[in-house]
Amino acid sequence: MVEHLLAGARGALVTHEWPHPRPRYVALLVHGYGEHAGRYAELAGVLTGHGAAVYAPDHMGHGRSAGERVVIEDFEDVVTDVHTAAGLAMDAHPGLPLVVMGHSMGGLVAARYAQRHRDALAALVLSGPVIGAWELPGRLLALPEIPDTPISPGALSRDRAVGAAYAADPLVWRGPMKRPTLEAFVRTLRAVAEDGDVGPLPLLWLHGEDDRLVPLPGSRIGVERLSGGALTERIRAGARHEVFHETDRAQVFAELTGFLDGVLLSR
């Protein structure tokens, strides 16, 4: 893995690259809230093995990028940073198909990215996306003080090693959510809902049936509204929030690469 230091919308933007000597497509990974792109090394390995050059920025206030921890005042800035990382990737690999994959909060960012840059994409992949009806920000903003209730590692995956690694990771945020970020969530959920679908862009939606952080029914509302009809849905029985880190992730990876094979063959 190689790290690039780019100029982001609000400071230094660290972008990870998992290179491929002769890629057939570019995969851009968009991580979730409070974590960082380095947690997706296994997924990146699957994708490079499938023929992708993989890139993934640490969002502002996350990982090794600049900014107050987990503060995002405007998700449009995060979308712009993802576009900066995409520019790095496409300058290195001009003409290759670009696939954007977003998890959780990154699913919201990836959805907004697809609305802004649909014509540049070959496909969109959303994993446990914060999209549609997500009630948490409104509930927390109604309180006089945001409670210091960290994400339970057990809510991520049935694989206990995943939770243990998350709990021990010094780059993972385990403090309270911050009001500016919650307010930005509300605005961006509304913007994605109001800005229409992504037309014929192929869309793969992956979600854990037992996702308690981003419940399945609320995401369904947003995904079905975002899709222009080219939707592939894969709901994993018993899985929790992070399907790429679940006990059955080999099957999830097979579903992902099978979807991508179909996209690439149709071009």
Rank of each mutant, 00 (worst) to 15 (best):
L206M: 15
H241W: 04
R139W: 08
A123M: 03
L171C: 04
P217K: 08
E255C: 00
L189S: 06
G63P: 08
P202R: 06
V109H: 05
A133V: 14
G102K: 03
I72S: 05
V198Y: 03
D211E: 13
R64K: 15
G175T: 09
A237M: 07
G229K: 00
E183Y: 02
L28C: 08
R267E: 14
A44T: 10
A111L: 10
V192Y: 00
L171H: 07
T84P: 04
L203C: 12
A66F: 02
V223Y: 02
R234D: 13
I131E: 01
G8F: 00
L201H: 03
E35T: 14
G102Y: 03
L141N: 02
D81Q: 06
H36Y: 09
P144G: 12
G38F: 00
D210N: 15
G38M: 02
W205T: 01
E233C: 12
D169N: 09
V26I: 14
P200T: 12
H93V: 13
L98Q: 05
E242Y: 06
S152W: 00
L182S: 06
A123C: 10
E233D: 03
L126S: 09
D74Q: 11
I221R: 14
S152Q: 12
L141P: 09
H59D: 01
L43E: 11
L231S: 10
L47F: 08
A52M: 08
A155N: 14
G222L: 02
R158I: 04
E35L: 03
G154V: 05
L171Q: 08
I151D: 01
L231C: 11
P200E: 06
A191H: 09
R116A: 15
E246Y: 11
P94K: 08
A191Y: 02
G208Q: 09
V109Q: 04
I151F: 02
D261G: 09
E76L: 13
P202F: 08
R236D: 05
A114N: 02
R22F: 02
